[in-house]
Amino acid sequence: MEHEVFTWASLIPFLKNQPPHVSNALIVSIILLVIVFLGYKQIKKAEDNIIPDSKFTFRNLVELIVENLSSIITDSMGPRGKEFVLIVGTLALFILFNNLAGLVPGFVPATDNVNTTFACSLTVFVMTHYYGFKEHGAKYLKQFVGPMWALAPLMIPIELIGHIARPLSLGLRLFGNITGDHLVTAIFFGLVPLLVPLPVMFLGLFVSFVQTFVFMLLSMSYFAGAISHEEH
């Protein structure tokens, strides 16, 4: 979209010259950092960090988010999922907050640009192979060869294509869903601004959560495949 869109980011002097997806991703990252920093400070302040506060405080909220994220990850990856809570949780929070930012007027979701989504999916791609090599050493390359050496010339291109398709589909799915949703909301808003965009915005809320969950689910299954010890 080449036409000028008003965003809150264009009011901030340094972010004015950045493309909208960069400035909005920066704003969302700063919001996330503030949340994390406040939560961390409150946990530090508490004298006993096992007993939860009696009232519902900010610390409870942060603990709830982190606990739910890590339980989702350990549920689907097994006991070794703990090693991946950091990377998968970070990506999930970043993507979720960016998706949701699209529903706030004046913000552009950073995930409706291919650059952001492919940055996320390529991170997953590189880290998958990093963990694979860390776990298996040079033996990791053997899983590309297939069951026996005679089939290697046939299996290597197939495996390569399959592995390249993963980050591409991961990034493209997130980009497509968020762009489509944002565009539909904008068009409905342009046609009838009163009440009509509400169902579409509700759908946008749903899509934001589902796409975040799909991204998490797929990256977890890729990580689990890279560190698993069975024959492929």
Binding site: S76, I161, L172, R173, V214
Partner: peptide, 24 residues
Amino acid sequence: VKSLLSYSTLGLEMGLSVAIGIGI
């Protein structure tokens, strides 16, 4: 929900595999 979501990812990945093959 989880199984439905993981099946829903199948279509895009299949199509992209063929496209990447042709591209290479």
